[in-house]
């Protein structure tokens, strides 16, 4: 499904003249996803709320200049991601520096998968236990920023490769490469935890 089809359509004209009803509809449609994006990017409810508020303030401020070249949803995701990255850099200024130095690993060969325990057989309540959820959250926060942004938009929010590329200002090839790297890293981190659970449960071997 295309991202723009997941959301209702909006009248740009009504939004630009600050029609309260249309603005409220927009907020209702997107506040959940923007908050979630903030939580996944920053892992802290207060930071996520800051992302949420500043995103909508920016959206309404910038609507008169929105040209509609990308869909409204992709545009909102882009603003939300920028707000999240700004908070991240304020919190850890060295991250921004590292990025500017261009420590890009897109051209490096993929590292070979190390963990080879099959943990798919674990029951759902164990895969999504409270402890497992903490492991999921921790793993995503350990991803380098440029992999995390792609993973969140593509795999969690379900944007297409093209939409993700637009929202992050990347080429589609870069989106694909980074997504695979993100998925493989997360798989390694989750395998460490779930692999142990499999061994404990005696399902292994």
């Amino acid at each position: 499904m295309n991202e723009s089809e997941k959301f209702p359509s909006f009248s740009l004209e009504a939004l630009r003249r600050r029609d309260r009803q249309e603005m409220s509809r927009l907020v209702e449609a997107f506040s959940g996803v923007v908050y979630r994006l903030g939580m996944k990017m920053l892992g802290d409810p207060q930071d996520a709320e800051d992302v949420l508020q500043s995103t909508f303030l920016k959206v309404f401020e910038a609507l008169p200049t929105f040209e509609g070249r990308s869909s409204l949803s992709t545009w909102i995701y882009r603003i939300a991601m920028n707000e999240a990255l700004m908070i991240l850099r304020r919190r850890r200024p060295e991250v921004g520096l590292a990025l500017e130095e261009g420590n890009d690993e897109d051209d490096e060969p993929l590292s070979k998968p190390q963990a080879l325990v099959d943990w798919c057989c674990l029951p759902e309540n164990e895969l999504l236990s409270g402890e497992a959820r903490r492991v999921l959250d921790e793993a995503i926060r350990k991803l380098p920023e440029k992999l995390r942004t792609v993973f969140i938009l593509r795999d969690i929010e379900g944007l297409s490769t093209e939409e993700t590329a637009e929202a992050l200002g990347l080429s589609e090839t870069n989106v694909k490469t980074r997504l695979l790297r993100a998925r493989l890293r997360l798989r390694e981190m989750l395998s460490e935890y779930y692999g142990e659970r499999v061994k404990e449960s005696g399902l292994y071997g």
């Binding site: 943990w119 993973f151 998925r183 493989l184």
Partner: peptide, 14 residues
């Protein structure tokens, strides 16, 4: 299989 499951778990959780 575990890669597919990884993506699935993040989707469900989110």
């Amino acid at each position: 299989d575990t890669l597919r499951k990884t993506i699935y778990l993040y989707r469900v959780e989110a």
